[in-house]
Design a protein around this nucleic acid. Structure first.
Lengths: 245, 245
DNA sequence: CGCACGATTGATTAGGGTCAATAATGGTGG
DNA sequence: CCACCATTATTGACCCTAATCAATCGTGCG
């Protein structure tokens, strides 16, 4: 059930069978959500950590006047912040984009696990640091890249993240994001996203239709995006640390 | 020596005298840096956690073609990510803006401290979560706010962060940031920052000169920025948690 | 005193936004 | 199976915010 998370964590460190069993054991209370449903709302009290098993979701904020910014996308195997339950209330919302299946890991369960399984703990911290790095890269994306570069960068990032958990098929992956959502994630309008996608298709950078993304030439897309994958810290970063607990 | 960090953490939870003494004990190897000096560079191996005692610094990334984005500002009492040393190499750089005094907390020292002092640990996690929230808010800032709103928001955030650690004097605080740096933080050009500052001064929103910022009417500035301070999670959030270890 | 860096201003351009209409798509119920 | 409705995608015309290019002016400081 948790193979996506496990597969992702193994990009950082090797996990023992016991580690994996412990992680599997997390999937007790599975929650199902329909597209568009709020998983958690601004102002809610976070009681547990959400672990996404299936489906896509977005983390977003809405300004008083309606302007909306998507701050991150969740895909299978993703985890919202490790210790959210420390905070009194959510400063943003998370909504399902597709049907979503997730586990709500209670505070005590997570803390207990981190007490007893240092290797998992370290891998989860890696996950947390990578998420922070992704958030920083989005800052760069919004602050210093052009419309085409922003979209290309987002496609690169998501394609590589999905590939890392085995959710790509050759150079194709699911991509259930509307142009309005792309706009809200890249700081553009949906009209301009549409025009930029047209340009990208004409340049042969992407094939995007029917909720599917195909990247005919990843190197070209990376170049167009000024994409440097170092911030994803894949490639078994943990190799420099002891393999023992 | 560490009063800024301690004062900040106390916005989240009450610390015992022992807790404070332990934190004070961190300031062993103090490092001094000149303005403009790199504290850590992209590609470097992070060996410890940096704790800023004095001075301002910026976390930034530079694209191949020279475009630069500042992703965050460090002020006294700030801490770079708790577990950076888990990663193999830095995906960004940190540079001193003013003369900087910082402590490099070695990995073992930090882990040991977290083992033995759960209340401090929880406070440090709060710090980490707040930093993540700030990074997300910057995403919103760059993605969905106008030039004036972005600058106003940045001024609000920094003023409130500084006030939280006692580094404001009435409605005035130090502000050693050049217009070029403001531009790199807000995704604008320095020319446009200059024009926007002029507009803000004319509107009576700020007084900015001689590396000093005065906010004559914080409510007005907040309004102009669409600033909602909830993401800073001040106001003793930890009150809902047990005061015992 | 002069030099560098930062601030300021003007003129012009361009990337992306706004407004508005139309065309596809896809799910639903009869 | 098909008509219908609601999203989502696409396109055109026009506008505006912020970028670019290029001087000039301050000012702290060695």
């Amino acid at each position: 059930m948790l193979h996506h998370l496990i597969r992702k964590l193994e990009h950082f460190t090797r996990l023992s069978d016991d580690d994996k069993a412990v992680l599997q054991g997390l999937s007790r209370t599975v929650r199902l959500l329909e597209p568009g449903a709020d998983i958690i709302r601004e102002g809610d009290s976070p009681e547990h950590v959400n672990l996404f098993l299936d489906g896509w979701a977005s983390r977003y904020k809405q300004l008083e006047d309606g302007r909306r910014q998507i701050m991150s996308f969740f895909v299978p195997g993703d985890l919202c912040d490790l210790h959210v339950f420390i905070l009194r209330e959510m400063d943003h919302a998370i909504a399902a984009i597709t049907p979503v299946r997730l586990v709500q890991v209670p505070r005590e369960v997570l803390l207990g696990l981190m007490d007893r399984h240092p290797r998992i703990t370290r891998a989860l911290w890696w996950e947390t640091l990578v998420n922070a790095a992704i958030q920083r890269e989005w800052t760069v994306n919004l602050g210093r890249r052009t419309a085409l570069e922003r979209l290309a960068h987002l496609f690169c990032e998501l394609f590589i993240r999905l590939r890392a958990i085995g959710l790509t098929d050759g150079n194709t992956c699911a991509f259930p994001i509307t142009q309005l959502e792309l706009a809200d994630a890249t700081g553009l309008t949906s009209v301009h996203v549409n025009r930029t996608l047209k340009e990208m298709r004409a340049a042969g950078l992407i094939i995007l239709k029917g909720r599917q993304l195909t990247v005919p030439d990843l190197a070209a897309l990376r170049k167009a995006a000024l994409f440097n994958p170092n911030y994803l810290h894949l490639e078994r970063d943990g190799a420099h640390l002891s393999a023992n607990a």
